[in-house]
């Protein structure tokens, strides 16, 4: 039964003439061409300052194949991900618009997906969303009309079958969106994590971005199971990485962030990075930490490239977008290839 369920999803009966690409996005073409993909991430500001987005986008431009735009990340109100995505489109940096199930019901989601496509957005990442109790409006009502797996399937049905959730046809066809989903190999129960990935693949995910990978041995074990089930052939898995900024951040992520495993070795390396640097010299400590954080991140990417079944990395350096370029360069992934259209 499990095998049957894990078997490839029946090929979508696309009503439109066979398109070579589902979305035609740069990310899709990159993956189709077999390149090791690199995506980045931009956190929109907590105001309506478009220049913040433009500035961050400029830092990522040329270093990544596409940049995620978070959707009220950690349940904190920020400039809309779709609006930010449109700004990126205008600037020539391809966005991956994140969308959570926390803030929208299926009406709003479908409407926003159409809107996103109309604005030239070609990639969407379907997320459950952090619980609002962790954010800045803990008294808000959450929606969760559908969950992330149902959302993946919804986007697929819209795109490939040209149907709304109610079964009504979308005149002129569905929005051309490459469908992404998240995976957290470090959450519990571990046994279920690969199954959950399989469900996302069966629902129609085209690419997966994982939670930050620090625990390499657990990730290898996870990827082994993924490969054993052949899931890596049905979906492009991008491993999440991110540079540590300080020893404090490493400890915080190890101890406080739900669903995150940071081995003590990295915490120790970050602590050792400032040995011999005077505690009062804040700038020097900061620089030492950041240099070590970038070094660790580059090493991780190199390790990850050796893992079978992995198709790229997703670099999360929120509020430190300057780090992306040295990381991509250091990992030997610069410049980015230009796939044919």
């Amino acid at each position: 039964m499990m095998d049957q369920l894990l078997a490839p999803a029946p090929a979508a009966q696309a009503p439109a003439p066979a398109r070579r690409f589902k979305s035609g996005s740069n990310l899709e073409r990159m993956l189709a061409a077999g390149h090791f993909a690199v995506t980045g991430e931009i956190g929109p500001p907590k105001n309506h300052d478009a220049d913040v987005i433009r500035r961050k986008a400029a830092l990522l431009q040329g270093c990544v194949d596409a940049a995620n735009i978070t959707d009220n990340q950690t349940a904190v109100v920020r400039l809309s991900s779709i609006a930010s995505g449109a700004i990126l489109v205008g600037q020539g940096l391809e966005p991956v618009v994140q969308m959570t199930c926390r803030d929208r019901n299926r009406l709003a989601m479908q409407s926003d997906l159409l809107g996103a496509a109309a604005l030239g957005i070609r990639n969407v990442l379907c997320l459950t969303g952090d619980h609002q109790s962790h954010g800045n409006h803990p008294g808000a009502k959450n929606v969760h009309d559908i969950d992330s797996i149902q959302m993946v399937r919804m986007v697929k049905e819209m795109r490939d079958e040209g149907l709304f959730q109610c079964g009504e046809e979308i005149s002129g066809g569905g929005p051309p969106l490459l469908i992404g989903a998240a995976a957290n190999p470090f959450a519990d129960p571990f046994e279920l994590r690969v199954h959950r990935l399989a469900k996302k693949v069966a629902a129609g995910a085209n690419f997966i971005q994982t939670q930050l990978v620090f625990d390499m041995s657990r990730f290898r074990e996870y990827m082994k199971r993924v490969v054993d089930l052949g899931l890596h052939e049905k979906v492009a898995i991008l491993a999440g990485v991110g540079p540590l900024k300080s020893a404090g951040m490493a400890r915080h992520m190890r101890d406080k962030v739900p669903g995150m495993v940071v081995p003590d070795g990295y915490v120790a390396r970050m602590e050792a990075a400032v040995e011999g640097v005077a505690a009062e010299d804040k700038t020097a400590r900061r620089e030492a930490w950041r240099a070590e954080g970038i070094r660790i991140c580059i090493e991780q990417i190199q390790e990850l490239r050796e893992i079978e079944g992995l198709r790229g990395v997703h670099i999360m350096a929120i509020e430190w977008e300057e780090a992306i370029r040295p990381i991509v360069e250091g990992a030997g992934l610069f410049p980015r290839p230009a796939p044919e259209a």
Partner: peptide, 21 residues
């Protein structure tokens, strides 16, 4: 489930406990 998921668990489940508390 704090998120009323029908295809859970979400990525916040850790050590058997919910990400909410």
């Amino acid at each position: 489930c704090a998120k009323q998921l029908m295809n859970g668990p979400c990525g916040g489940s850790q050590g058997g406990m919910c990400e909410v508390d």
